[in-house]
Design a protein around this nucleic acid. Structure first.
Lengths: 360, 360
DNA sequence: TTGTACGCGTTATCAA
DNA sequence: TTGATAACGCGTACAA
C-alpha cells in the first residue's frame, strides 16, 4: 500500500518537473528518464530501428503516446540535414493547370512521406528570387519550379543546381540549367491548333503569344509558324502579338489586330485567358465567333467549356505532370549519390474542339 | 611580394579546408575564423544587432557575401523556436475564393517577413489531421485554417489552441474552439439571395446546401429560412437537400428536386459549383433558366459570370479576408504574451444579380 | 563593443 | 541490444 502511494507521488512529481521545465513539450529525454533508459534508445525505437527489441519498442511507443510526445521535426531536420519537405514554386496557384499540377505533386509526395510547401511568384521576379532564397535557407530537400514570365536570369536557381539539390522544372522550364524537366509538347500543341484552324478554312491566322524568353511560348509560336508554312500560308508580322497573356493583354491584342489593314479570320491564343477576353470583346462588338473569326486557346482551363461560345483549346495533363515531377524529384532525393544525367519528359498535348472554332 | 603570396596561400588553404569539411556550406564560424573574431559577433552583425559597431558590421557583411554565406534557418529556428513560417490549411486551392484568400495572406505575410506554407486537405479528414500534425511538428509559428466538410472532431486543432499557438479560422470555422475567426455574413448572404428570388416572383424555392456540421452552411440555410418566413412562404422539407456541393452532387440534387410532386420555381445553391451543374442539367433538359427556374449561387467564382446564363451569386471578399486573417495571426504571434480575447470578424456579403435570376 | 560558454532536441558513432 | 557522448549551427546570458 505504502509503496504504491510512493510510486504515485514519484510519478506526479516528475510530471510536475517536466511541465515546469518544458512548457508542455515532451522530448525523448523525458521519456528516457521516465523509463530509466537512454535517450538514444528512445530515438531508435520511435524511428522503428530494427535493432531495438520488440518489447522495449512497444513500451517506449506506449509511454510516448501517454506522455503526449510529439517529435520535434525541426531538431531532427537540423541534425540530419533532411527536412522531408519539397518546395513548389509557380507563378499562380489560381489557375486550373497549376493547381492540377500541385494536386499531382501532393499525391505522390504525401504517399512518400514528404511535405509540400507551395509558393506563388505572381510572375514577379523579385518575389521569385526571395521565395527561392527562403526555401533554400529552410533547407527543402528539393524544388519543383515553373518560372515567371519576367525571369531572365537564373542565379537564384543555380543556387540549387550548383549545390546538387534536386531540382525539377515543369512547364516553364529553364533551358540553361541542367535539371530534369517535365513539359508538354508545346510545339506540337501550337502546330495542331493552327492546322485545325487552317483545315476549317482560315488563311489569315493571328497569334497572341507570351514572352519569347519563355520556352513554351517560343515553341507554341514555332508550331504555329510551321503549320502556316506547311500550308503555304504567309506569316504576317502584324498578325503576331506578344504580351503577358493576362485578360487585359488579350483585350488590347484583339483591339490592335482589328486595326490591321487585313483582319484575321482566326486567332491562335497561347492561353485560354486571352482567348476568353478576345471572345468577350468580339461578342461585345458584334463580331461572330466562329463565323467571322475562329479561336483556339491553350490549357483547357475549366471556364473554356463553360463560356459561350465554348473555347477550342489544347489539353495539358497537369495532374500527371505533377505526379511525374514529384516522382522524379523524390527519386533524386533518395539516391542522391549517383547523379543520373538529367532527362526531359515530354507529355502529349491534345486538341479539344469546341464551338469557338466551329464545332458542329 | 612574398607576404602577399603567403596571404594568398593562406586564404586558399582555409577555403579548401572549409570546402572539405562542410561540403560547401559556409557558417558563421567560418566567417569568424576568417576574420579572427567570435562567432557571436558575426551572428549579431548579421542580425543587425545595433550593439555591433558600424565598421565591424560592414566588414562582416562584406565577408559573408564574399564567402557565399547563407543563413541556416533550420538551425536558427531550432534555437529560437520560431520558424517565421505560417501554415495555411484549406480544403482546395483550386477555387477562386480560396486562392484569393491565399493571395491576401501572402501579401501580408511576406511584407512582415513570414513565409507561408500552403496545404490542401481535399475535404479529407485524415489528410487534414496529418497535415496539421506535420505543421505542428515543423513548428509553424501560427496557423490559418478553413476546415473540411467531413471534419467533426477537433483534437488536431486543439493541439494548437491548447498550446497557445496562434490560430485563426476563416470561412469554415470551428465554433467549439476559442480562436480568431474571419467569416462572411453567411446568414445575410442566404437571406438576401432568397429574398431576391422571392422579389422576382418565386414562391417554391429549393435550397441545395452543404453539411450542417459546417457553420457557414447552417447559416446560409438560416438566412434562407428566415427570408421564406418573412415572406410568409412555407418551407417544404422536400425542397431542402444537403450534400458536399460538388459538381456531381449538384446534378444529383436537381434530378431529385425535379422528381418532387411540386417542382421548384427557384433554387438557392450554397455554392457556385452546384449552381453551375444545375444550370447545365436544366439546359440539357430544355428547362429555361431563369424563365422556368431561377438560380442564385454563392461565392462569385469567376466562371459564374462566364457561363450562359451567367449566375447570380453572393460575393465574398476573399482577398480581404486573407489579409485580415494574416494580420490577426501575425499580431498574435508578435505579442504572444497578452492573450487578448479572441474576436470574430464578419465581412459583408453582396448580391450580384446576373442572368440566372432574371437580370434584364 | 566584443568574447566565452552553453544549450536547444535529435541522431550518429562508438563502446559496452 | 542498449548506453554514453558528441555533434549539428545558431542565439544569448554573462563576463570582460
Amino acid at each position: 500500500m505504502q509503496s504504491i502511494a510512493n510510486i504515485n507521488i514519484f510519478i506526479s512529481f516528475t510530471e510536475i518537473l517536466t511541465q515546469m521545465k518544458k512548457q508542455g513539450e515532451t522530448t525523448i529525454h523525458d521519456i528516457a528518464r521516465k523509463l530509466n533508459i537512454a535517450a538514444s534508445t528512445v530515438s531508435r525505437a520511435l524511428n522503428n530501428n530494427p535493432i531495438i527489441s520488440e518489447p522495449t519498442r512497444k513500451l517506449i511507443e506506449k509511454t510516448a503516446k501517454e506522455m503526449g510526445y510529439r517529435p520535434n521535426t525541426l531538431a531532427a531536420s537540423f541534425r540530419t540535414k533532411r527536412t522531408n519537405m519539397i518546395g513548389v514554386v509557380l507563378p499562380l496557384i489560381n489557375r486550373h493547370f497549376f493547381s492540377s499540377v500541385i494536386s499531382g505533386i501532393e499525391e505522390v509526395a504525401y504517399s512518400s512521406g514528404f511535405a509540400v510547401t507551395i509558393s506563388q511568384t505572381n510572375d514577379n521576379f523579385e518575389k521569385e528570387e526571395k521565395i527561392i532564397q527562403t526555401l533554400f535557407s529552410n533547407r527543402v530537400d528539393g524544388l519543383i519550379v515553373s518560372i515567371g514570365m519576367q525571369t531572365q536570369t537564373f542565379n537564384h536557381l543555380k543556387l540549387f543546381s550548383d549545390k546538387k539539390i534536386p531540382l525539377v522544372f515543369f512547364d516553364r522550364v529553364v533551358e540553361e540549367i541542367d535539371a530534369d524537366k517535365i513539359v508538354v509538347d508545346d510545339y506540337r500543341g501550337g502546330f495542331i491548333a493552327t492546322e485545325h484552324l487552317i483545315e476549317h478554312g482560315a488563311t489569315k491566322i493571328a497569334h497572341i503569344g507570351g514572352p519569347l524568353n519563355v520556352k513554351i511560348y517560343k515553341d507554341r509560336l514555332s508550331g504555329y509558324k510551321d503549320a502556316m508554312n506547311k500550308a503555304g500560308l504567309p506569316i504576317d508580322e502584324n498578325m503576331l502579338i506578344h504580351n503577358s497573356l493576362t485578360r487585359e493583354d488579350g483585350t488590347n491584342a484583339i483591339k490592335k489586330l482589328l486595326l490591321n489593314e487585313e483582319k484575321p479570320d482566326a486567332i491562335f491564343c497561347a492561353n485560354d485567358t486571352t482567348a476568353l477576353s478576345v471572345i468577350i470583346y468580339l461578342r461585345e462588338h458584334g463580331i461572330k465567333v466562329p463565323d467571322n473569326i475562329s479561336i483556339v486557346g491553350f490549357s483547357n482551363e475549366p471556364f473554356s467549356e463553360l463560356v459561350t461560345p465554348s473555347i477550342s483549346t489544347i489539353r495539358q495533363p497537369g495532374f500527371e505532370m505533377g505526379k511525374k515531377a514529384a516522382e522524379l524529384l523524390i527519386n533524386h532525393i533518395k539516391q542522391k549519390e549517383q547523379h543520373t544525367s538529367s532527362q526531359t519528359i515530354v507529355m502529349p498535348t491534345e486538341l479539344i474542339v469546341r464551338e469557338s472554332s466551329g464545332r458542329d
